[in-house]
Amino acid sequence: MSRIARLLNASAEVWRETRAPDGMGGWISAWAAVATVRARFSQPSAAERVVAAQNAAELSHVVYLLASADVRRGDELRRGTDVFEVLATFEPSEPGTYLRANCKLRQAGV
């Protein structure tokens, strides 16, 4: 078991947008649940928020996941009524340790 696994004290559903042709040259989009993952939700430091703001991004949470978690930019992590939009994912300098996802909390129904 990964060393980080014991620190992941929450779970979240991973939702991914899927697209299919509508038969008339357009697309139909829908969100589908693809997995449930163990996670740790943290708030970013003030410095991380400033850097995000300077790059026109709104960073509200940092989510740590197992390195094997299939979470990508554009996915949603859902926990109860909270929906976290994944802005970017990063691996630390030592690959296979964990996966970090920078996220923005969205209100339900938005």
Rank of each mutant, 00 (worst) to 15 (best):
Glu48Lys: 10
Ser11Lys: 09
Leu8His: 01
Val63Asp: 04
Leu7Arg: 12
Ala56Phe: 06
Gln43Ser: 04
Arg19Cys: 08
Ser93Leu: 15
Ser93Ile: 15
Ser29Met: 15
Leu66Tyr: 02
Ala69His: 01
Val86His: 02
Tyr64Phe: 06
Val34Cys: 05
Lys104Tyr: 12
Ile4Ser: 03
Arg79Phe: 05
Val51Glu: 15
Glu85Phe: 14
Trp27Leu: 14
Ile28Trp: 08
Leu59Asp: 06
Val71Thr: 06
Ala46Arg: 11
Arg79His: 11
Ala33Glu: 13
Ser68Gly: 05
Gln54Thr: 04
Arg106Lys: 14
Ala56Glu: 12
Thr18Val: 14
His61Ile: 07
Leu77Ser: 00
Arg72Tyr: 08
Phe41Asp: 03
Arg100Asn: 00
Ala32Gln: 09
Ala35Lys: 07
Val86Pro: 01
Tyr64Met: 07
Ala5Phe: 06
Ser2Gly: 05
Arg19Ile: 10
Arg72Asn: 04
Glu58Ser: 07
Ile4Lys: 07
Ser42Phe: 00
Ala57Arg: 13
Arg49Tyr: 00
Ala67Gly: 12
Phe41Pro: 00
Asn55Glu: 15
Ala88Tyr: 13
Tyr64Gly: 00
Glu58Trp: 07
Val37Thr: 05
Gln43Phe: 08
Ala57Leu: 15
Val51Cys: 06
Pro21Asp: 15
Ser11Leu: 01
Ala12Ser: 06
Val86Glu: 02
Ser45His: 10
Leu8Ile: 05
Ala57Pro: 00
Leu77Gln: 01
Ala32Asn: 07
Ala88Val: 12
Val51Gln: 12
Leu59Val: 07
Thr97Arg: 14
Gly26Glu: 09
Ala67Thr: 13
Asn102His: 13
Trp15Arg: 10
Tyr64Trp: 06
Pro21Val: 14
Ala5Lys: 15
Ala20Asp: 08
Asn102Leu: 15
Arg106Phe: 13
Ala67Ser: 15
Glu13Ala: 12
Ala47Asp: 08
Glu91Pro: 03
Arg16Glu: 09
Leu65Gln: 07
Ala57Ile: 02
Glu58Arg: 05
Gly80Ser: 12
Ser45Gly: 11
Glu58Thr: 04
Glu85Met: 12
Glu17Met: 13
Ala57Ser: 08
Ala33Trp: 05
Thr89Leu: 04
Ala33Leu: 14
Gly25Cys: 06
